[in-house]
């Protein structure tokens, strides 16, 4: 896989002195769909804005298709289409005029047939003579997408494309995204919704506090960071965790009827066999067993929370330890 966008050691400190990005390194592969996940204020929009040329970086470089996005901005920007997070549109322009404007701004000769098809694909064609201010929010979102695609970009940035969008449009949007990907367009989207990233992305990057915590293949991410839990239901409630089971990472539920065993899927041996035998020899009777795998959401929440509130996390851990002690 060759990188179409290559970000090296990128940092941004706003005039207010706020550090919105801290030494971000990221390669975006040609033709992939990359989802950037992160809580509010993580720096997603800042990162996208720098790549597109809207915000100047404080340090670091961005190369698009091998060209530097500052010194060779004409070449890099011509390849990029951007759908901004906010519904920023003129008021009095018509849909048709604004889309033609965008195409011209990117230096492309007018091609009304292409634009007509684009508007049809986005179910906007019947609204083409409407003024922008008279459109609903979802329609405005479609217009922004049409503007971003008006110059046939190779790379498309979608900054929270599904904010304030109904199910129908979301479905349409994903269809469009998939179709664009099939035609070779690289797509980078930001979202707060894990299901979205899970549904559409090939790779997932997680940003928090201006740092890119990780970027990984979706499958690998879920595999690597996904913990599995084996939940054992007992026939009779146990008064406490028997001493012989203390060496296993086991947790007994409050009512004493459930044992939860957490294990790492990547380790060589999961220790399940031993543990189950130990349970039996401790005299506990099994009623049922069930395996749970953590979702992307759990992974995300874990990563971001640890990153955000390291102190709090420690205190939570300690509380749990205290509780466990009190029980046994």
């Amino acid at each position: 896989m060759s990188a179409i966008v290559s970000i090296k050691d990128l940092s941004k400190t706003y005039q207010s002195g706020f550090r919105a990005l801290k030494n971000v390194d990221l390669d975006i592969a040609d033709g992939e769909i990359l989802a950037l996940l992160g809580p509010n204020g993580a720096g997603k929009t800042t990162l996208i804005s720098i790549i597109c040329g809207i915000v100047s970086p404080s340090a670091g470089t961005v190369a698009v298709n091998g060209f530097d996005n500052v010194s060779d901005y004409r070449k890099t920007r011509a390849l990029i289409g951007l759908v901004p997070q906010e519904l920023t549109l003129g008021q009095f322009d018509t849909v048709w005029n604004t889309v033609r404007f965008s195409r011209g701004l990117f230096g492309k000769k007018s091609n009304d047939a292409y634009l007509e098809q684009l508007l049809k694909d986005l179910s906007l064609f019947d609204k083409k003579d409407n003024e922008l201010r008279a459109l609903s929010g979802g329609m405005k979102r479609r217009v922004l997408i049409a503007k971003a695609l008006s110059h046939e970009p190779k790379i498309l940035f979608l900054d929270e494309p599904t904010a304030g969008v109904d199910v129908e449009l979301r479905k349409d949007m994903w269809n469009i995204v998939r179709r664009l990907r099939d035609s070779g367009v690289t797509i980078i989207l930001t979202t707060h919704y894990i299901e979205e990233a899970e549904e559409i992305a090939d790779r997932i990057g997680i940003i928090s506090n201006g740092e890119l915590l990780l970027v990984e293949d979706k499958q690998a991410l879920m595999h690597n960071l996904g913990k599995k839990q084996l939940i054992v239901e007992l026939k009779e409630s146990a008064p406490g965790l028997p001493q012989s089971l203390a060496k296993y990472d086991l947790e007994l539920s409050d009512d004493g009827e459930q044992l939860t065993y957490t294990y790492d899927t990547m380790s060589d041996s999961t220790g399940i066999t031993d543990m189950l035998q130990a349970i039996q020899s401790a005299g506990l009777l099994l009623k049922d067993m069930q395996i749970k795998q953590s979702s992307l959401e759990d992974i995300f929440v874990d990563l971001v929370r640890v990153d955000k509130e390291p102190v709090d996390q420690k205190s939570v851990d300690k509380k749990q330890a205290d509780l466990a002690e009190a029980k046994s």
Partner: peptide, 17 residues
């Protein structure tokens, strides 16, 4: 006006000097 409404983003992101 484009600065005020935010539509200036498009000018900044376009390949124009």
């Amino acid at each position: 006006f484009p600065k005020f409404t935010g539509t200036i983003y498009e000018i900044h992101s376009a390949p124009i000097s």
